[in-house]
């Protein structure tokens, strides 16, 4: 028997930079349009955080309501913002990846000369865009109906932090997308997303949760993102921001590592 020929990993094509940029741009555009028109995604990812914010942040709001020293409706922008960013990122990456990987579409794309990285980059970029949309909607609602006052600097910092904070959850989504089946992905995401949100104090402020849960929250990445966001509007537990960033960066790297194992396992199935 002859020995198996050694296969090289896909090599980069000498494309002009402008063409590579065009591919990335079109990949992001198509991913965005696909998801925008997929109401199961766009309505849910935008609708749930907005609905929660309207119910808890606006309907239950009163002029003097506050959590600690932070105005109620402002506090909830940070926490429901984190909740919204998480949802947009997890469903945006894991949902699409698990389905396309499991049902053959990724294979069609891999057989084409598409740069493989463009595929993942588009999923992440699309999730970041949706995260920004959710946060901006919460801002608009809070400012117009909730009596929220944010300085331009605070607005930019809060938006920037939350949108950047979508990246750890995109990484988690890629990892889930590589290990979940096309039919189970949404259920698995929900089973991770919803308890994680609750335990991180995104629905109900952490101070209302039992002591044990308050402690437990410290190991949960959404807690750290919400603390960064709350810190900007003067709320939260007032811990060092470095801890939060370190946890989020570490978490991102671990998730990317897991996603990479999944990627290689798939490639192994393909090439092995």
């Amino acid at each position: 028997m002859t020995t198996a020929s050694t296969m090289l990993m896909p090599t980069a094509v000498a494309r002009p930079l402008s063409q590579t940029l065009t591919i990335y741009w079109k990949e992001v555009k198509c991913e965005f349009l696909t998801r925008l028109r997929l109401r199961a995604y766009s309505l849910a990812t935008i609708g749930f955080p907005v609905m929660f914010y309207v119910l808890f942040g606006l309907v239950l709001n009163s002029k003097d309501a506050a959590i600690g020293s932070t105005h109620f409706a402002t506090y909830l922008i940070a926490t429901y913002g984190t909740f919204g960013v998480m949802g947009a990122s997890l469903f945006g990456t894991a949902g699409g990846l698990a389905a396309e990987r499991g049902l053959g579409w990724l294979q069609v794309k891999r057989a084409s000369p598409m740069p493989p990285f463009a595929y993942f980059a588009a999923k992440v970029a699309m999730s970041v865009i949706f995260s920004a949309i959710v946060v901006l909607l919460l801002f608009t609602l809070g400012v117009t109906l909730g009596g929220v006052h944010l300085s331009p600097a605070e607005t930019i910092k809060l938006l920037g932090t939350l949108v950047l904070g979508s990246l750890p959850f995109c990484a988690l989504g890629l990892a889930i997308g590589y290990f979940a089946g096309p039919n189970s992905a949404v259920a698995i995401i929900n089973l991770i997303y919803l308890p994680l949100s609750f335990c991180s104090g995104l629905w109900v402020p952490l101070t209302f949760l039992p002591n044990l849960l308050q402690k437990f929250a410290h190991v949960l990445p959404p807690y750290h993102l919400s603390q960064l966001a709350l810190g900007i509007v003067g709320g939260g537990q007032h811990e060092s921001n470095w801890i939060h960033w370190e946890v989020l960066i570490g978490f991102t790297l671990i998730c990317l590592g897991v996603a990479r194992i999944g990627f290689q396992r798939d490639e192994g199935k393909m090439y092995g």
Partner: peptide, 15 residues
């Protein structure tokens, strides 16, 4: 230089 048509169970439907 290759074009491929594969059997695929689901194509993104909203494009």
């Amino acid at each position: 230089r290759i074009g491929a048509m594969m059997q695929v169970a689901k194509v993104p439907e909203t494009l």
